[in-house]
Design a protein around this nucleic acid. Structure first.
Lengths: 334, 334
DNA sequence: TTGAAAGCGCTAACAG
DNA sequence: CTGTTAGCGCTTTCAA
């Protein structure tokens, strides 16, 4: 005689011949249950039409089991690689991943207002986005563990990239390679809601050059729109200069790749006629053979996730700022 | 010292100097509590910002406001672009996005078991992953709105790509361009848990060629590992054939891009010596000028999301299969 | 990998 | 009216 009440974990457990703990595990951490046991439990669940009571789960659960990522440009390779780092770090934990793409200032404010209050998240990773006073306080007050990547705030742990020294590295590398006339390419369309590390990369680049007595004339520093014709045009402009540059530092691999294509189309040999160095070291950089500066994208995501998890496990852990080191990856374009 | 957890009835009770039972009564049967006691308790509740935990989840019971994506290779550009389509479709809705990356058969089974039962999702989009009988039934039984991309199941709406006709398109295009000796490049490392559309792309390619009386010899069909040396080697092998191919159909843009680089390194002119056509039309294809076959990646994600939302709004909506059309995008490599 | 047992936050029965 | 106490159904140590 079937029980008239809704089935519980106990019913499922009895039918599958396991303990209630195992039933719970099948639902909450399937990969921690042996294949055949899981199948048996799932069969019992299906047969009984078992549905866990939401309030009971909520009550017993100490966390909601979810980490969020707040990110602009969430499909740009550099951001995707950071997300990959996060996802990998989360893979064998009971935490799932929620994405909150930011495409405007309004969206950023909106998320920063609601996320801490609605308590649907245990932790938050904020990528390359500024955190204002009020938002920071709200996160703190509501006790949402937050880690910042790229931005800085006294009350939160963060992962920092030294963009200035990235520029120094690029200049140093190119100088040692013997290049002597330089140019810089930055992104032309900058949204207001995200951080802009390009300026500091340029500063490091420029300072290093000038320390070697080499100027970086204004016409060598360009911020074209990302369209193909625009990038094309910048190269033409450069190459028709009385003393055209022999090496370009592009503020991102994305830019460098566009530049590379435009150069090839104009019959400009890379690196013979024009050397190109990028910044980021996205996957595609390797596939294309682009010389660039590695900023440990995957690693930054992985560390951010680990830092969130660590704080979740022990809230007493001190706020810390981690500096990731940069490294030139020599390939074929410079 | 502020409490680090959310306040509970115990905190309220302590602060109001009553037992937890009284707190509960104030919440559930206020008239059974003396006026002044009730006021004291309410004051404590307000001060602590107390919200009964069960309530919170009970309120959310109608809709949790979350759509999930189950996907392999979630950082591959082609999958990322689909996710972008989904994210854009969700941007101005009250739904957030959860990602469930699948990296093994066990993980796939695990998610397919737990997701429908635990009710943390309103809808699910399954990308390029097979759905077995049991999993399908479970999704249905638990009423989790699901849309499939690439795979097919009679009980679920899906978005289909006609891979066979993609092969036909590639062959037709190359033939019309006047090429007469062909090769095919597929991925060498195939995980067991995901779908494999390459076979059908090859079939369409091969059939079309043979309909024109052109053979595709075995040695022209290769599945190298994705490492640079391996791809390099395939080209060498081809070019040293007595009758080397003049055009290659790569089963994905990723492969095509690797091939392109390897070719250039060996001084092989593309498309003069060897034409290359890819499949997918990822963002990068445009940036590097790759001729390829567009399969509307963004669009497929957008449609999937819209179909989930539509079914959520009106569960009576019939199951439908949408066929996305393919299109050759002519750029510079073929 | 699994089970026993101790909670989780809350409600309700029962005393007083 | 209020406090004590025993669950509710589920999760999560901890040991085995």
């Amino acid at each position: 005689v079937p029980n008239s009440r809704n089935p519980t974990v106990y019913d499922v457990a009895r039918r599958a011949n396991v303990s209630i703990a195992t039933v719970s595990r099948v639902l909450n951490a399937p990969d921690r249950v042996r294949e055949d046991t899981r199948a048996r439990v799932m069969q019992a669940i299906d047969q009984l039409g078992f549905v866990p009571k939401a309030d009971a789960s909520a009550r017993a659960r100490k966390s909601v089991g979810r980490i969020g990522i707040l990110t602009p440009f969430f499909t740009f390779p550099s951001f995707v690689q950071r997300m990959r780092g996060v996802a990998n770090a989360l893979a064998d934990t009971p935490f799932e991943l929620a994405i909150y793409p930011v495409d405007s200032l309004g969206r950023l404010d909106g998320y920063l207002s609601m996320l801490p209050v609605t308590r649907r998240l245990d932790g938050l990773i904020v990528m390359a986005l500024p955190l204002n006073e009020a938002a920071g306080n709200r996160l703190l007050a509501n006790n949402l563990e937050t880690i910042l990547i790229e931005s800085l705030h006294p009350d939160f742990s963060s992962i920092q990239i030294d963009d200035y020294s990235g520029g120094v590295l690029a200049a140093t590398y190119l100088l040692r390679k013997g290049y002597c006339r330089f140019a810089f390419l930055g992104p032309g369309e900058l949204p207001t809601y995200s951080l802009h590390p390009e300026d500091r990369r340029l500063a490091g680049f420029q300072d290093t050059l000038s320390r070697h007595g080499i100027p970086l004339p204004d016409e060598a520093v360009r911020y074209p729109a990302l369209s193909h014709p625009d990038v094309h045009q910048e190269i033409q402009r450069w190459m028709s200069l009385p003393e055209p540059p022999t090496a370009v530092f592009a503020a991102s691999d994305d830019l460098a790749i566009r530049l590379l294509r435009a150069a090839r189309e104009q019959g400009i040999q890379v690196p013979e006629d024009l050397a190109i160095i990028g910044f980021d070291d996205i996957d595609m950089a390797e596939q294309i053979g682009l010389t660039t500066i590695n900023q440990s994208l995957d690693e930054s995501g992985r560390m951010a996730a680990e830092m969130v998890l660590a704080r979740l496990g022990d809230p007493e852990r001190p706020v810390q700022t981690v500096h990731l080191s940069l490294q030139v990856v020599e390939r074929e374009t410079a």
